[in-house]
């Protein structure tokens, strides 16, 4: 879909969240000069075309007790990348799984996935188990837990 000027105003208006009132789309429309129906149609179209990936609750995993947030990085031979990526992506506990470029010689890892858990030990045990069950013992990996979080906010759009 091609975004028009109104869409950009709508994108900026709802990025911080929908109003918690009984007619939220009407209220947004009032602020930017659109009627409720148009707001609903344009949001629908943006969801349909993937410009909005999801509309709903965005949780703060840290505050919900998911404090052990591990980035697991793998050095996967190129010819096995798709197989391993799909395997890992299908597992319940893995919430993101991306191929990224290696930066040799400093950084050999090309597959990144995120696991959010409530305790480090359990996350590590889970990774050990999946290395065994998925046949990944010969693929070097590293687990990077997050420490202090310095900045967390979504990207801002004007």
């Amino acid at each position: 879909m091609v975004l028009n000027e109104q869409d950009y105003r709508l994108i900026a208006e709802i990025q911080g969240g929908l109003p918690l009132t009984s007619h939220p789309y009407a209220e947004i429309g009032e602020r930017i000069g659109l009627d409720e129906k148009t707001v609903i149609q344009r949001i629908d179209a943006m969801l349909e075309s993937g410009i909005i990936k999801r509309l709903g609750i965005v949780v703060r995993h840290h505050e919900l007790g998911y404090t052990a947030n591990a980035m697991v990085v793998w050095d996967v031979p190129d010819e096995r990348l798709n197989e391993v990526g799909e395997k890992l992506g299908a597992l319940d506990c893995i919430t993101l799984c991306y191929q990224r470029p290696r930066r040799l010689p400093d950084w050999p890892y090309n597959l990144f996935c995120m696991i959010h858990g409530q305790e480090r030990e359990k996350v590590l045990a889970y990774i050990d188990r999946l290395v065994g069950s998925e046949g990944l013992a010969d693929i070097p990996h590293k687990v990077l837990f997050s420490g202090r979080r310095f900045k967390q906010r979504g990207a801002r759009y004007q």
Binding site: L3, I11, I14, Q15, G16, G17, L18, L20, T21, S22, I43, M46, S49, G50, I51, I52, K53, R54, L55, G56, I57, V58, V59, R60, E63, L64, Q152, G154, A155, Y157
Partner: peptide, 26 residues
């Protein structure tokens, strides 16, 4: 429902209730 969402936002269990954009498609 609105009351519960307000409370969870206030307690920071939710960061927001809204869209997650696809940056590249924007």
């Amino acid at each position: 429902l609105i009351r519960r969402l307000e409370r969870m936002l206030e307690q920071k269990q939710l960061s927001r209730f809204g869209p997650m954009y696809h940056a590249e498609r924007l």
